[in-house]
């Protein structure tokens, strides 16, 4: 499967990204509960891009099986925005620097099987999440 890249710069793009994510998850055989968890996680990450960085992209890809013998659906949300000064703080429940209910990062992590975040102030943020197939 080729990677699917969706550029994110508006609230419409958030809807497109999560719909594409759900379609792909359905094709890969995820249950409807998992499809919706994946779509909701994509929505939160896309929302962070629009809210904090204005623009960026979401990439959907398939990763080969790791040691556990299972492949996964991988979602990468990448921007060149202001970055997160204190990632540990942003991963705390209830923390928010914006008008939103929070960055949604701790919640997004709970929706998925794997979660990684790399953020450099002034350089941008990349969040990678995976759901095992």
């Amino acid at each position: 499967m080729n990677d699917i890249a969706i550029s994110i710069s508006s609230d419409q793009d958030i809807v497109i990204a999560r719909q594409r994510g759900r379609e792909l998850a359905a094709k890969l055989g995820f249950s409807s509960t998992e499809q919706i968890a994946i779509a909701t996680a994509i929505s939160e990450l896309s929302r962070n891009i629009v809210e904090y960085a204005k623009r960026g992209e979401v990439i959907l890809s398939l990763t080969p099986s790791q040691g556990n013998g299972r492949g996964s659906l991988q979602i990468t949300a990448r921007d060149r925005g202001p970055g997160i000064p204190d990632v540990a703080l942003a991963m705390r429940d209830g923390y928010s620097t914006s008008r939103s209910l929070g960055l949604g990062l701790p919640g997004t992590r709970r929706l998925m099987d794997e979660f990684e975040i790399v953020s450099k102030p002034g350089k941008g943020t990349t969040v990678t999440i995976r759901k095992w197939i």
Binding site: S32, T33, Q35, I36, A37, T40, E44, D93, L101, G102, G104, P106, G107, T108, R110, L111
Partner: peptide
């Protein structure tokens, strides 16, 4: 929907 409720709870909403 039940799946939506489940995702909302996991998200902490």
């Amino acid at each position: 929907q039940p799946e939506v409720a489940f995702a909302m709870v996991q998200l902490g909403l």
